[in-house]
Amino acid sequence: MRTGLPVSLVIVVALLAALPLAFTANTMLNFLTFVMIVTLAAQGWNLLAGFGGQFSFGHAAFFGMGAYAMAILQVRYGINAWLALPLAMALGAVVGFFLGFLSFRAQLRGSYFALVTLAFAEVFRILANASSFTNGAAGILVPLKTSAADFQFADRRWFYWVALAFVALVLALTYHISRTRFGAHLVAVRENEEAARALGVDAFRTKLKAITLSGAITATAGCLYTQKFLYIDANLAFGPWISVEALLAPIIGGMGTVLGPLAGAMMLLGLGEVTKSLFAMLLGGSIPGVDLVVFGVLLILCVAFAPQGVMGAIKRFSSRGAP
C-alpha cells in the first residue's frame, strides 16, 4: 500500500473507536457491536457482489459456518477461542472456494448464482438443525469464561473494539484491493465478463478468489457473533436474516465502495432500532418484523432512486473526478 490509507478511513475508524467513551450505556455498546458484526458480514458480501458483481442471496452459509465452527471447536474440542478464530475463518474460505468452484464452473450468473447460494445456506440450515454434531435444534451454548484469554471480555467496550479492529482491517484490505490488479480485474468482470476475458482476465479465477476471501470475511462475522452472544442455533447462524442484512447494508451504503457496508449497516440497524421503538411506543408492545418491513421498503427505494447508495450520492456531490 504505497499510497497509504486515505485520511477519511483513518478518521472514520478513530471516531468509531472513540464512541464508547461518549456512550457508555450497555444497550448502546451492544448496538454498536452488533453494527460491527453486520458490517463485517456485509464487507464480505460487498467484495464479491459490490466489486465482483456476483450477487449472493446466501451469505448466511459463510456466516453460519464461522459461527458454528467457533462454537464447536471450543465446546466439542476444547480449542482456545483465539485459535478457533483463524480455523473458523479458514473454514469460511474453504466453503467459499467450494461453492464458488461449483457455481462458477457451471457458469452460473445473476439470478442463478443468487439462488444457488440461497439453496446452499438452506441446506446448511436444515443439516445444522437436524444433526447431532451441531446439537440439533437445541443449538450450542458456549460456556461463560470471562477472560480476554478466552476471547470474552468483562468490559463490553473491549469486545466492541476488537470487532471494530476487524472491521478496520477489512476496510484497509478492501481499499488496498480496490487499487490492485485483482481489484481492477474484479470490477472488470462485474462490468463485462466477455470484455474482461479479451483483455487477459481469468474471470473464473478472479471470481473464485473473491468468493474465497468473501467467505473468510463473512465467516469472521459469524465467529464474532458466537463470541458476543455465546449461543448459536441453526436459524441464527444460517437463517435468511443475515443473508439479507449482509446484502442490504452495502446496497444502502453503496455497493463496490470501501465505506459502503459500514455506512449502510449503521443506517440500516439504526433505522431498525428507531422503527422498533417507535412502534413499541405507539402500540405499547414490541411488534416483530416491523423493522424488516422498513428494510424491504428501503431496499426497493434504494434500487429505484439511489443505485449507488449513500456513498455514491456523497461521491456525486463532492465529485472528485480522479479515478
Binding site: A184, H185, V187, A188, E191, N192, A195, A198, L199, P323
Partner: peptide
Amino acid sequence: QPFAGLSVHENIAVGAY
C-alpha cells in the same frame, strides 16, 4: 463492450494490467 461504470482511464488500465 465498454466497462460502462468505469472511467476511460480505468477501462484502458484493465488491459494494461
